[in-house]
Each structure stands twice: as structure tokens, then as C-alpha cells.
């Protein structure tokens, strides 16, 4: 049993570590949940992609329930950002390239934490990145 969470979440265009980081949080095709301790991962299909509205809110709650300590993506919309902040999950945005590279950067502390949503809309309606 480990005392602290070592899992991180990366938004991804595909199901492998060679996939690219998807720039969207709420409507990315997949989430890669990576365990930095055991170097294992699972790819989760993002069902929120089909949501009429509030995709980021739904996705945020899903990720919060996965007990991850950080989320890495391109952009956070304001709704998703609020959910993740409330859940105490660290947020890293403006990340591109492969999922593998993103994990490396995270390990080497090369990513800077995001302090505000990237998309300034205050609508969750219809879309939420």
C-alpha cells in the first residue's frame, strides 16, 4: 500500500503512449491514467465527448474519482478547471507533443502549474474544453 497518489492523467488523441496530447480536456478522445510508480497505464475512453453540455464538468468528476494527483492537457475550460481545483488536482496546460514526452517532462519537473483556465468563456453550455 502506498500512502500517496502517484497517478497522473494525460488527455490523449489515442490509446498508446506514442499518441499525442489532445489539446482539449472535456472533449478529448481518451484519458491516459499513468502510474508513475509502477510505470503502467490504462487508457479510458472519454464518454463526456458526446455530452450535450458540461463535458468538462463530467470529465473532471470522472478524473477526480480516479484518484490522480495531476492532469496534463492543452487547454482547460473554466468549468473543468473549477472541478479539478476543488478536487485538489494539480493542473498543467499548454502541453503538446506525445503523451510519453509529457510524462517525461512531468517527471523532470519541466511543467509549470496552471493557475487559471485557458479558455475564458464562462459558459459550460454546448461545449467545455
Amino acid at each position: 500500500m502506498k500512502g500517496k497518489t502517484v497517478k497522473i492523467c494525460i488527455t490523449s488523441t489515442g490509446t498508446s503512449l506514442d499518441s499525442n496530447v489532445d489539446p482539449r480536456f472535456g472533449r478529448c478522445p481518451y484519458f491516459i491514467i499513468y502510474d508513475t510508480d509502477t510505470d503502467t497505464f490504462e487508457a479510458i475512453n472519454n464518454a463526456s465527448r458526446q455530452a450535450m453540455g458540461g463535458a468538462g464538468i463530467q470529465a473532471g468528476q470522472l478524473i477526480a474519482s480516479k484518484n490522480v494527483s495531476a492532469v496534463i492537457t492543452g487547454n482547460f475550460g473554466p468549468n473543468a478547471f473549477r472541478v479539478l481545483q476543488t478536487a485538489g488536482i494539480k493542473t498543467y496546460s499548454r502541453v503538446s507533443g506525445t503523451v510519453k514526452d509529457a510524462i517525461e517532462k512531468y517527471r523532470n519537473s519541466q511543467l509549470t502549474e496552471t493557475s487559471a483556465p485557458d479558455v475564458t468563456s464562462h459558459y459550460g453550455v454546448g461545449r467545455s474544453n
Binding site: N20, D22, R27, P29, Q50
Partner: peptide, 20 residues
């Protein structure tokens, strides 16, 4: 109904292609 959802879907696909 749901033209809002359809708009969201067409935009999502456009974004997928734009990134790829």
C-alpha cells in the same frame, strides 16, 4: 431537437482533424 449537440459534434470533429 438538439442542434446544439450537433454543432458541438461537428466542431469536435473539425478540431480532431485540425490537430491531426
Amino acid at each position: 431537437e438538439n442542434s446544439g449537440l450537433l454543432v458541438t459534434m461537428v466542431r469536435s470533429i473539425a478540431e480532431d482533424i485540425a490537430y491531426a
